[in-house]
């Protein structure tokens, strides 16, 4: 009894260690890659800080202050040391500490991604189930086309079209940004998740306004993840529906609805969780184009803008955050996997 418990705890420690090693190497790789990219892009970072018109001596002084005169390996060591101590430095573009910036832009992206994924999963999964059950029927074809369009149409174009229809013509949704300027003075967000903040503060008109702002970009993102999720659901479901336990269930006389939703989908849900989690993680990186069109002050826009201006502090900070999100979501989906699949549960 005692030996068994010890063996189990040893196993847990080993698993934790393994996880730590994976995380550490991932982070180190991330650091090296961002540093390398930052140094090979043919952009002078000083130019980013000062612009084209700064006089020569100011350029020289800034180059020195940014440590760009040091040998590369020294720069890398400094870079790693700062990153490890959690200090990502100051963003040259916004003049704020990078962490402050990220605390501001990340909730915007996360809120959008969460609503987007909810839409994608809530519609995508039933559509996929439908397509699998009515395989080869007209419904299956329609789902296929919906998915194909979502895959192949450029999001930039679709976003502008959606704006034209739902905002300019029908006036169902609001634009631009996350919230109307009339609330600039009356609404002070706490968490940065405006829907949550408005709900928390019971500001119903704000909640409605925020909803009207988020629904269109979120639906667009949702549509793209829907395309992926519905395809995957269909193939997982097809796989399950061919299993013998389905035949057994039918023989038992269970209703078709119960067989599909309670048995087949229950089993297809296991790999599906990974699919949805990955698509969620993808959205969390921030969709640059969506954010540009909707003037959404999110992470994608922040990192792209920083990269184009060789603002390496901001790029590093953003990359580390995205890396952490990926690791976190992978961990989470592993845990979910275990709850959903009894076979992987530790006994």
């Amino acid at each position: 009894m005692n030996g068994r418990r010890r063996a189990r705890s040893r196993k847990a420690v080993a698993a934790a260690l393994q996880f730590l090693v994976v995380v550490a190497t991932t982070y180190l790789g991330l650091l090296a890659v961002t540093f390398f990219i930052g140094r090979v892009i043919p952009i002078d970072p000083v130019l980013a800080v000062l612009g084209d018109r700064a006089p020569a001596h100011v350029v020289e002084r800034t180059r020195e202050a940014m440590g760009l005169n040091l040998p590369l390996y020294q720069q890398f060591v400094i870079y790693c040391r700062q990153a490890l101590s959690g200090d990502f430095g100051i963003s040259v573009l916004t003049t704020n500490p990078v962490m402050t910036d990220i605390r501001r832009v990340f909730p915007a992206t996360m809120e959008l991604a969460t609503v987007g994924t909810l839409i994608g999963a809530l519609i995508g999964v039933p559509l996929g189930v439908l397509a699998a059950v009515k395989r080869g029927s007209i419904a299956d074809q329609i789902v296929r086309v919906i998915g194909l369009v979502g895959y192949s149409v450029p999001i930039f174009w679709l976003a502008l079209l959606a704006l034209l229809v739902f905002y300019a013509r029908l006036k169902w949704v609001a634009y631009p940004g996350r919230i109307d300027i009339v609330y600039e003075y009356t609404f002070s967000p706490i968490t940065g998740f405006y829907l949550v903040d408005a709900l928390w503060q019971r500001q119903w008109d704000v909640l409605r306004d925020v909803f009207r702002h988020i629904i269109l970009p979120a639906s667009l993102l949702g549509y793209f993840s829907l395309a992926y999720i519905s395809r995957m659901t269909r193939s997982f479901m097809l796989n399950e529906l061919q299993q013998e336990y389905i035949v057994a269930a039918r023989a038992k006389g269970l209703s078709e609805a119960r067989i599909i939703w309670a048995h087949a989908l229950r089993n297809a849900a296991v790999p599906l969780v990974t699919v949805i989690a990955l698509s969620y993680a993808g959205l969390l990186e921030g969709s640059v184009l969506t954010e540009t069109v909707f003037s959404w002050p999110g992470l994608g826009l922040y990192i792209t803008n920083s990269l184009q201006n060789a603002d390496m502090n901001a790029v590093l900070g953003g990359t580390i955050i995205i890396g952490s999100v990926f690791i976190g979501i992978n961990l989470l989906s592993d845990l979910l996997y275990r709850t959903l699949d009894p076979r992987t549960r530790a006994r």
Binding site: L160, P176, G177, T292, S295
Partner: peptide, 21 residues
């Protein structure tokens, strides 16, 4: 006076036509 950061010409035009800016 409120300046809203909007990068896209097409987006600015839509918002202007709708009266949001």
């Amino acid at each position: 006076v409120i300046y809203r950061h909007m990068k896209e010409s097409a987006g600015q035009r839509l918002a202007l036509e709708a009266g949001d800016i």
